[in-house]
Amino acid sequence: MTDSGFPQRLAALNAEYARCIDDDRMEAWPEFFFERCLYKITTAENHRNGFEAGIIYADSKAMLKDRVSALREANVYERQRYRHIVGGPAIIAEERHVVRTESPFLVTRIMRDGRMDLFATGKYIDAVGEDADGALRFVERIVVCDSARFDTLVALPL
C-alpha cells in the first residue's frame, strides 16, 4: 500500500474527512470507515493510562450512522460548526492489510453568535486500509485530544 503515492493519498483522505464534517455533510462521514471499525474520542491521559472508554465510541459503521441520526433527529444543541486543520500524516507502521498512521489536528468551533474558540487539539491515531475498490478507509480512527477538558458539549464528531 505504501508506495510513493501513498502519503498523498493519505493527506487527501484527511482533507476529505475534514471537509465532510466542516461542510456539514455528516451523512457521508460514516463512509470513511469500514463496516467493522473503531472510532473513538478520548484524551491523551486516558490513552496513556489504558482507559478504554471514549466520549464517543463506535465499533461499527452502523453505530457511526446512529451518531449522525442522533445528531440530526434527537440531540439538542445550539447551531455550531467546526473548522478542522489537519497536519501532515506520519506513517508509523505497515501491517499486512493496514497502515498505522498519525496526524495532528486542530479544531476551532464557531457558534451561531459568531463566537469562535479553539475547541480541540490532538492527534488522530489511525489504521487505514484499502476497500475492494482500492479506496482508503479507516479501520480505526482514535481521536486523542490533548486536553481532558471539553467545553460545554461535543455535539459534532471530531
Binding site: E52, A53, I55, Y57, A70, N75, V76, T152, L153, A155
Partner: peptide
C-alpha cells in the same frame, strides 16, 4: 460499558443537552 459510554458525558446521547 464502552458502547454505553455513548449515552453519557460531554457527547452523551442522553446527557449532551
Amino acid at each position: 460499558r464502552l458502547k454505553q459510554s455513548n449515552l453519557v458525558g460531554p457527547a452523551g446521547y442522553v446527557s449532551m443537552e
